[in-house]
């Protein structure tokens, strides 16, 4: 395996990204606003009594962590993959002596660093102003971190298979917009999943979207039971496997009919 090439790619991509840091900071700001609005709304709704066992300070903690998790798992390279396929950028990738997914992963890693360089200080600042409260036991933290890795992989691969549909249709990006909307509603951004009304909550538990953002955050809170966490992790692994298979199948089938000029 050519690890040196991979590292060089990450370095190069990162340098080219930092050139436009203002642009990426504005993007990151835009992504953190929806959970931020939810946080302010739920804090106002919770008032002094709290809602569903969560106090005002706990809502703040939930959403501040969610803002970080949302940024870590958001796979923005899925949005550019369609252009790479349509405009023939893929030609260059295919010529390199390594799997093309490394190019995408390189841009993911570079992006993560740039975005987190903006979001982390803002989240810390908000924490100082809004005074969140949360007590986390070490085992919960370990489980949450594990679930966070799975969440990132799931959100990335799920978006990746949607993006690969660009091999067949130029309008695959619309499905990514749909994914973003479902993530907003079902993944604990609009409201913590435990507070969703009946039908929506069932949908959230069964569909993959909750396991992309909200689930790792839920683990940190004591009102999530052990059985709930275990079944959630199983769901996460199941959907991750499904996404991986879909990516593999679509990539192979797509390459066979791929014929873009340019790049």
């Amino acid at each position: 395996m050519n690890l040196r090439g991979g590292i060089a790619l990450i370095k190069g991509t990162w340098a080219s990204w930092m050139q436009y840091r203002a642009f990426f900071f504005v993007l990151a700001f835009g992504w953190m606003v929806p959970p931020l609005v939810s946080m302010l709304v739920w804090s106002a709704a919770a008032g002094a009594d709290g809602i569903g066992g969560l106090s005002q300070a706990e809502f703040t903690a939930y959403y501040l962590i969610l803002i970080l998790v949302n940024q870590i798992t958001y796979a923005q390279s899925n949005w550019t993959m369609g252009d790479v396929i349509r405009e023939g950028g893929l030609n260059t990738w295919l010529l390199r002596p390594m799997p093309s997914i490394f190019n995408v992963l390189a841009s993911e890693c570079a992006g993560k660093v740039v975005y987190m360089a903006f979001v982390t200080p803002v989240a810390v600042l908000l924490a100082l102003v809004l005074r969140p409260e949360i007590t986390v036991s070490p085992d919960r933290l370990a489980l949450a971190l594990m679930s966070l890795c799975l969440a990132w992989a799931l959100r990335f691969l799920w978006g990746y298979w949607l993006a690969l549909l660009a091999f067949w249709t130029p309008r695959a990006d619309a499905l990514l917009a749909l994914q973003d909307a479902l993530v907003f509603l079902l993944s604990g951004v609009a409201a913590p999943v435990l507070l969703l009304p009946g039908g929506l909550q069932t949908a959230a538990r069964l569909l993959p979207f909750r396991y992309m953002v909200g689930f790792p955050v839920e683990i940190l809170f004591q009102n999530a039971g052990v059985g709930e966490i275990l079944s959630g992790l199983l769901f996460q692994v199941f959907w991750l496997a499904a996404a991986a298979v879909l990516c593999r199948v679509l990539w192979k089938a797509g390459l066979r009919r791929y014929a873009a000029v340019g790049g």
Partner: peptide, 13 residues
């Protein structure tokens, strides 16, 4: 959809 459903969720609580 996200706007109205999101609002509905809050007012269910």
């Amino acid at each position: 959809g996200t706007g109205v459903i999101g609002l509905g969720v809050i007012f269910s609580q």
